[in-house]
């Protein structure tokens, strides 16, 4: 019997593969998401352009905040979509097949990677349209990773909650946004420091550590609490 039970990791991997497979099957969803972030960037670009703001000298903090807002809205859509597209009978099936820990771990990994890709894509579009100088590439990469993890973990948990509430994306946003504010403060602070805002340079390490701590707490909470959401 023991041998027939696949290990925790291989179960996680199987679920992860399943999500990728679904993503590959309907590519228009993926394309739609990237189009969503591109159009948001263009909206910001045009609003800045025709309001007399110099695109070259956009303050680092403004750049960072606008960028994370774009990522915020795309990731809410992306993450909640990964839950809401599951058919109800599929969910029942997963209930019998997997333990809740396997399911949430797979979802978290999938959503973190997906949000990370989204934010990298959004940052490339953003850089091209609204040029900015990256002062410290290392810090920028770190904050991209940690920020994406914050977004993905929070919205994964909130999507699970909203799914059980038989509600929609709106509830994910309503539940998630207020809790995101603490993380967002650290994320935008570090981002503007990475873009060369001298005044914040000394706070970078402190803020990054706090962000890591908050991310770890979030992941622990998500995994520990998920069985209670999952139970029918």
């Amino acid at each position: 019997m023991q041998n027939n039970n696949p290990s925790f990791l291989s179960q996680v991997f199987a679920l992860f593969q399943k999500d990728i497979l679904i993503e590959r099957r309907n590519k228009y969803v993926l394309g739609g998401l990237f189009l969503f972030s591109s159009s948001t960037v263009m909206m910001i670009y045009f609003s800045l352009l025709y309001n007399g703001d110099s695109l070259q000298n956009l303050p680092a903090s403004t750049w960072g905040i606008l960028f994370w807002m774009v990522v915020l809205f795309s990731s809410v859509n992306a993450v909640s979509n990964s839950f809401f597209r599951e058919k109800e009978e599929n969910m029942m099936y997963f209930h019998f097949l997997f333990s809740p820990y396997v399911y949430i771990t797979a979802k978290l990994i999938y959503n973190v990677i997906f949000t990370l890709l989204l934010s990298v894509a959004a940052s490339i579009i953003f850089m091209v349209v609204i040029p900015t100088h990256i002062h410290s590439f290392v810090v920028f990469t770190e904050v991209m990773a940690l920020g994406s993890i914050s977004y993905a973990v929070l919205f994964t948990t909130m999507s699970a909650i909203a799914l059980k509430a038989k509600s929609n994306n709106t509830l994910v946003a309503v539940l998630g946004f207020p809790i995101l504010i603490p993380m967002l403060i650290f994320i935008t602070k570090v981002t503007s420091a990475a873009l060369g805002d001298i005044t914040m340079q000394e706070l970078v390490t402190k803020n990054l550590l706090l962000l890591i701590a908050l991310d770890i707490v979030q992941i622990i909470l998500a995994i520990v609490l998920f069985p209670y959401i999952w139970r029918e």
Binding site: T157, P178, I179
Partner: peptide, 17 residues
């Protein structure tokens, strides 16, 4: 059950904040 889960999640983050 669901609101208890949300409550715990939110309070921990909020108090840290």
């Amino acid at each position: 059950r669901i609101s208890a889960v949300y409550n715990i999640f939110a309070i921990v983050i909020y108090v840290l904040f």
